[in-house]
Computed example of a mutant assay.
Amino acid sequence: MAQPDLKLDVAGVNALMARAFPDAPVEALPQVTDLAPGRAHIVRAYGGGMLRPGGVISGPNLMSLADTAAYALILAHIGDQLMAVTSSLVMNFLRGALPGDLHADASFLRLGRRIAVCDVKLWTESQDRLAAQATVTYAIPS
């Protein structure tokens, strides 16, 4: 697949995400740290309330970051279209995510005019020790 062009840079996507979620505490809002055509890296700083019994980061936190990473990737490529919405999220939990900053790498499997499908890989320890993988589909408004 030919990689689409970026319409927003890192600062532009972070500003757009802050505008899209004005009630989110700043510390809870993941930050885009790197963008390239067809790819995005975002980080959610580790904080209280992220752990489940057993001392690993909870599934809802992992799922939220996967969805947010896909949304950030899409916005970086389509621009200010905040009404893009999740239509599917399939999550594969691979191992417990140990306490620490939560990282997500998102890439396109497909970016069309009406739909985008993203592959998202998540980890805390190392990119070589994935905690989860998600396939996230978004509907893009016409």
Rank of each mutant, 00 (worst) to 15 (best):
D5C: 02
L6P: 05
K7V: 15
K7M: 15
D9C: 10
V13Q: 03
N14F: 14
N14L: 10
A18H: 07
R19N: 12
F21S: 12
D23E: 13
D23I: 08
P25M: 04
V26H: 14
V26L: 09
E27W: 02
E27Y: 03
A28Y: 14
V32S: 07
D34G: 03
L35W: 10
A36E: 11
P37M: 05
P37C: 05
R39N: 08
V43G: 01
R44D: 01
R44F: 06
A45N: 01
Y46F: 15
Y46I: 01
G47H: 13
G49W: 05
M50E: 11
G54A: 08
G55F: 04
G55S: 05
V56H: 09
G59P: 04
N61R: 09
N61D: 02
M63S: 14
S64Q: 14
L65I: 13
D67E: 14
D67C: 08
A69G: 13
A70L: 06
A72Q: 09
A72S: 15
L73E: 08
A76G: 13
H77Q: 10
H77P: 12
I78H: 08
D80C: 06
D80W: 07
L82M: 13
L82H: 04
M83F: 06
V85G: 06
V85N: 11
T86Q: 04
S87L: 04
S87T: 14
S88F: 03
V90W: 00
N92Y: 13
N92A: 11
L94A: 01
G96I: 03
A97S: 11
A97G: 11
L98S: 09
L98F: 07
G100Y: 05
D101M: 04
D101T: 11
L102I: 07
L102H: 05
A104R: 04
D105Q: 12
A106V: 06
A106Q: 10
S107R: 15
F108A: 07
F108Y: 13
L109W: 01
G112V: 12
G112W: 11
R113T: 09
I115Q: 14
I115P: 00
I115Y: 00
V117F: 14
V117W: 14
C118Q: 10
D119W: 13
D119R: 15
V120F: 07
L122A: 04
L122H: 07
W123V: 00
W123K: 00
W123N: 00
E125R: 15
R129V: 01
R129N: 07
R129A: 09
L130R: 04
L130W: 06
A132Q: 02
Q133C: 03
A134S: 12
A134C: 09
T137I: 08
Y138L: 12
A139M: 06
A139C: 02
I140F: 07
P141W: 09
P141Y: 09
